[in-house]
Design a protein around this nucleic acid. Sequence first.
DNA 1: TTCATTCTTGACATCGCTGTCACAACCTGA
DNA 2: TCAGGTTGTGACAGCGATGTCAAGAATGAA
Lengths: 341, 341
Amino acid sequence: MVTLKDVAREAGVSPKTVSRVVNDDPAVNTGTREAVAAIIKRMHYVPDHAARMMRMSHSSVVGLMTDVVATTPYSVDIVRGTQAALREQARTMLIASTDGDPEQEQEYWQVFRAHKVAGVVYATMFHRPVDIGTPDFERGIVLANCYSARRSHPSVVPDDEGGGYTQARHLIELGHRRIGIVSLSPVLRATVLRGAGYRTAFAEGGISYDTSLDVPGFIGRPDGGEDLVAYDATLGLLRRPDRPTAIICGNDQIAVQVYAAAATLGLSVPDDLSVMGFDDMTVITRTLRPMLTSVALPYFEIGRIAVEQLARLNRETGGVVTPQTLVPCPLVARQSCRQVA
Amino acid sequence: MVTLKDVAREAGVSPKTVSRVVNDDPAVNTGTREAVAAIIKRMHYVPDHAARMMRMSHSSVVGLMTDVVATTPYSVDIVRGTQAALREQARTMLIASTDGDPEQEQEYWQVFRAHKVAGVVYATMFHRPVDIGTPDFERGIVLANCYSARRSHPSVVPDDEGGGYTQARHLIELGHRRIGIVSLSPVLRATVLRGAGYRTAFAEGGISYDTSLDVPGFIGRPDGGEDLVAYDATLGLLRRPDRPTAIICGNDQIAVQVYAAAATLGLSVPDDLSVMGFDDMTVITRTLRPMLTSVALPYFEIGRIAVEQLARLNRETGGVVTPQTLVPCPLVARQSCRQVA
DNA sequence: TTCATTCTTGACATCGCTGTCACAACCTGA
DNA sequence: TCAGGTTGTGACAGCGATGTCAAGAATGAA
């Protein structure tokens, strides 16, 4: 380990001067600075994080607490977004995934305390309320993809209602009037919010909302134990004499089964049926033929914004923190939706 | 911040004794231990990681260097496996994702050095050779899902050849004799290895390997810029007068298009055509109807084993480190493959 | 030329913890 | 009873960095 002292000796200056060079303290003669910088480079000196952290009593590390990163593959983008934003701030990330186990979570809060992390991004893989019990955790916490029922922490969540609106709106603009919905489990907050979005768009388009066209594509609790029944549900919709000309899906997996059901009945997508996904899982949307039009869950963006909010939270200078940030879900138009007469 | 000294004062003992209690040093009177432990708990004392690390000049943190976590959604399981294994060792994980940018990678090596990480798991999202240039990084490095061309570091990789063998073998056991292959880009190592696996299984089954039945499902470089042409490729195979009764896919996305091509031609899976996927992306395999039989990429396991190897590497007591660990790719049988007469 | 500023630099203490070593108190067996 | 051991505890130093403060050198103003 090359230390500050080693560099100082080599350079013939005091350790403090080397420290100044490392920290870009302007109070160093240009000549000295350059000489020292050269030696630092030559000796491959890297300041010891532990010592620094100890002296300064806080670290440049941010904790990321997640429950089940694996359920929705692309929710990983929250991690990517967080990481990307942190990089810009020259910070790094300590990651903890708890599998939803409260005991593990408690352990990791201790770890974060021990590491004196500068703050924590608390991310969940479903958009849902959480209740954070963190004895004595003094640093800032920002919730990503979840929100505090007690409004105790700022949160960054996808605008599911807007996403639902976007799905319906796009189809209506293409001239569809009979629109089926194959939705996620009704216990999910996303389902409720998007439902509100559909209804707003329907009302704007002068379309009455027909409950019999709104069927669940998943049944059971959405934590691995659920069943995907979208195929049968869609068959039901498509066999009606007044079958819908378009179907809005709760996610892209449902869309896969809608495609299958359409194929079974000899219906062509998008000629006979337009299909609109949600999530924009590229593994699916770009793989299906025709490629699936979908509305993206802005996970990367959510991670990025969460870090931004965290920075504001910590900059105690009255940095303005938004209690809840709604991140829009943009339409990604591909080939599965078509204009109707 | 509650410090050791605070606890000591409160307990009426010396800091060193508190330190002993925290570290489970047996040389503490049971009574003292319990008293101190109670106070630690009451005061919510958590040992300062920085101070500890500084004193002991190494940390309990392991670095995870990844390139592009996002390309294959489930490659995230490497991260999960790593994390799970580290938890058992009471270690934590500093994560860096470089997007494949060498400059970022260099930066993160410095960060890892600064943090005095106990070791590094270097994970890539494609099974491929890597060349690690790490000036002055003294701690252990284990490669996950990649390997060193210069054999300078131990690696943990999926047994792609075995996976290919498993795919072919399963179909042969079901009685298939004409088996089509829609493969990944031929520039991928996985493609080459699995090809060898197919041929071994074919030879064992007394089936001659027909190159005209082996077509690429992707074209272009496999880093986001590639094109999925499996649909057309499959149509080609299925329109042959001597069409294959089964198709082996390079991954599950290809299988999606194989299903689509079969549907287009009015062929039923699995009655007219058996389909075998690879990767076991559950988003796809459990969503397709019939559900897709696939061979799993054991990402979680790879992460876990990498951590294990790292532990051996650091336990300098001649811990035996396997230069290359091949992790088997298990068959996950579902409904897309059927016995033929 | 002299005094007041600025500019550069270094000595020193200190952050929280643990390794080393010393020492007191308590045993054991002869 | 005492030498020799074991047990439990604390004083102290020091890990590598930086904040504080002071002092010497260089500059400018009068």
